[in-house]
Nucleic acid binder design. Structure first.
Lengths: 340, 340
DNA sequence: CTGAAAGCGCTAACAG
DNA sequence: CTGTTAGCGCTTTCAG
């Protein structure tokens, strides 16, 4: 059994409180007693019981991170960044994987709240934020920051990028590269997937080019979804020559499907993803993508969360949008001869 | 403020105990009272306070996962597998990133234990397991499973593969492909890195081929380490024609360095990694690797841990070694003409 | 079937 | 400077 304060106190013939204070560096303990206590505690490998401490202080030094997927390296990067920011301050992170399912996400959030986490970072899988999660979160006054997935018109902390712009940026790039039969393998049915789709469509409308056609196929957020989506596109009589994929994982799947079919990227089909995942320049065909600054995002999310956790009264919600940055690599960069 | 049992009890005019029992489905509560309580609890979105509950039951339903790196997708796969196994049973996972540093790892383990986690999964960064961690773990009787990183001769739960065999397998493959100037970009200075290195050297000795030379360069476990390691190898007068990399991340970095130098893979240099990370067949040059069955590993680790957590008395430590499976892709597969 | 008493390991507030 | 008292929200034990 682990040592408790009581044990140290009894052994040293002082009261439990004296031990408690000494251990936490309270000033009103004599130099000598403090040292005696600290030494003995060290010898016994004493570690304060955080469960007990949390029960009274109402602080757990735990932050919950809810993400739809760990395998997609974008969220692994977020998790990594968050733990690097928060770890040195004594926080640990509880990971909850919603697997892109709104109901699972709800349950996980509830559990996290029941554990009295000090804060929450959510890449939400909710289709409609307003009806899903808010009231659970509002009952508890646990601060939270949404990340990556933008909730439609809710006044909450958010760090991410403007999805519609992102979609438009990717699409304009394909147009500029001379693609005339565009397609989009869309993401999940949530604000994020919807936003990128809208950006795609808006950019097409604005381009004003009459001869440009387009298609949208169902996708998702994972590699498999991209693979299937692209297969479907390849069945079309007039197959696309430029495809914007919801994210890099989807794009990776799409590339696979194209190469299997024996077509060339970008000559036959140009491809662009989103996320700028850390290995995307090492892919079969180095992947063009829209950078979302994952590292900075998690850094910002962490600092907003910290502000909230430290504040007495909840600060005004902040929304930080990082600019979408186009990164052109081989998968979409057509040589002059290929452009029309 | 969140609702407590006390609130429900007062409101319904029953005792706190009755609520507690009803909520946990105790049989000795009348049908009617139970329903009244359950209904009200649901209406109020009551969630039991796990901190309080844990303090008395000594169960947190939290499992700690300590890994040296999240970005290397192998561990992300482990984290994912673990949470998929344990999640449905009501467990959540606290992530602790040791960043390949033994001291950080120790601190993280101590914190996890102070949080009374029910169990621990460790991909340990300790150089020498015996002097590092055991006594911290033995004081607490928290069950734990080591994963991937094999401790030298300690009788504890372990799930992973035989590193020396893995190294030998990779090396034999390179020899069979006709490489004659082998090199190894080694991993961290721990049993795992050491084992793979030994396998490399053993396979070379056994091959008995006199004209085969070899080199070993310092590396690490990340992409950068591989990049730097390969750069160093490329400086040699007689540069290697076959390189075994500690893991896939290192191999990805190595590939980058080779391509930047304008050399061909596998014709000029064959490369093989380890881990069979999920995107390795999508890499610039599809990566040959040794599969370590990440998914099955985490599944097995989870089930061993569960057995321990449920058992009254600690079961005999189990060690499960998965076979290393060679996966040949383009990065090491030389055409006949290239073989000597 | 229901509830009162005691306590998990710790800290806040105050009294000596 | 040190110690006492009173909980945090829940469960365990045992008496009604």
């Amino acid at each position: 059994m682990a040592v408790r304060m009581k044990d140290i106190a009894k052994e040293l013939g002082v009261s439990l409180m004296t031990v408690s204070k000494a251990l936490r560096g309270h000033s009103d303990i004599s130099q000598e007693t403090r040292e005696r206590i600290l030494r003995r505690a060290r010898e016994l490998h004493y570690q304060p019981n955080w469960i007990a401490r949390s029960l009274v202080t109402r602080q757990t030094f735990i932050v919950g991170l809810v993400i739809p997927d760990l395998m997609y390296s974008f969220f692994a990067e977020v998790a990594d960044g968050l733990s690097k920011q928060l770890g040195p301050l004594g926080y640990q992170i509880v990971l909850a994987n919603s697997d892109e399912d709104p109901a699972t996400e709800r349950t996980q959030i509830e559990l996290l709240l029941a554990r009295n986490v000090d804060g929450l970072v959510l890449a939400s899988a909710q289709r409609d934020w307003r009806r899903g999660v808010p009231h659970i979160l509002q009952d508890h006054d646990t601060p939270f920051v949404l990340i990556d997935r933008q909730p439609s018109g809710a006044n909450v902390n958010f760090v991410g990028c403007h999805d519609e712009e992102l979609g438009a940026l990717a699409t304009r790039h394909l147009l500029e590269e001379g693609c005339v039969r565009l397609a989009h393998i869309r993401g999940p049915d949530n604000p994020c997937g919807a936003g990128r789709l809208q950006g795609f469509e808006r950019a097409l409308r604005k381009s004003g080019q009459k001869h440009v056609t387009h298609n949208v196929v169902a996708g998702g957020s994972k590699e498999d979804d991209g693979y299937r989506g692209m297969k479907e596109l390849l069945k079309l009589k007039r197959r696309p020559d430029g495809v914007f994929c919801y994210n890099d994982a989807v794009a990776a799947g799409a590339i696979k499907a194209v190469l299997e079919r024996g077509l060339k990227i970008p000559d036959d089909i140009a491809i662009i993803g989103a996320g700028n995942v850390h290995y995307s320049d090492l892919l079969r065909v180095p992947l063009s993508t829209i950078d979302q600054s994952a590292a900075q995002m998690s850094e910002t999310a962490a600092s907003i969360l910290l502000d909230c956790m430290r504040a007495k009264t909840p600060p005004e919600p902040r929304r930080v949008l990082f600019p979408s940055r186009l990164i052109v690599r081989e998968s979409s960069h057509r040589t002059a001869s290929n452009k029309k």
